[in-house]
């Protein structure tokens, strides 16, 4: 029986995260943590003409937070910063394609919240 949370998409991004690392000479360098579990994330990126042209992250976190950062960074590359700020939490949870229980919302949303708090 396939696990309801740890499906292919989460495990694949956990093992081979996209956009992992840091951007050289970044326009922004954001760090945040999840105080309930101590997970840490760092996001660096380059902005040109209001558009996010490059983004990378590193994290010390669970499979859910790592996979969601991997998916989200892929999604926001090329987007206008103003659009990124408008992204909705429920859409990010949906994008993961797995069932996220409320206890894991903070894990799944750490990356988005770091973006939105830092770029506002």
């Amino acid at each position: 029986m396939e696990d309801p949370l740890y499906r292919e998409i989460i495990l694949e991004h956990w093992q081979n995260p996209q956009n992992y690392g840091s951007v050289k000479n970044p326009s922004f360098d954001l760090s945040d943590n999840n105080p309930s579990c101590g997970d840490k994330i760092r996001i660096t990126g380059k902005i040109k003409n209001g558009k996010l042209i490059d983004v990378r992250f590193t994290c010390q976190g669970c499979a859910v937070s790592k996979a969601s950062a991997s998916i989200l960074t892929g999604q926001v590359k090329g987007m206008l910063i103003t659009e990124i700020i408008k992204l909705k939490e429920e859409d990010i949870l949906k994008n993961l394609g797995v069932e996220i229980t409320p206890a894991r919302y903070n894990c799944a949303l750490l990356c988005l919240r770091t973006f939105q708090n830092g770029l506002k």
Binding site: L5, C37, D39, C62, A63, R104
Partner: peptide, 26 residues
């Protein structure tokens, strides 16, 4: 390299209650 939260989530599926994290001992 599995994160403690992921371990405890799966243990919970088996009814096994454990704690994961820094245990107030950073």
């Amino acid at each position: 390299a599995i994160h403690p939260h992921d371990v405890s989530e799966i243990l919970n599926r088996h009814g096994v209650c454990v704690r994961a994290g820094h245990h107030c001992a950073q």
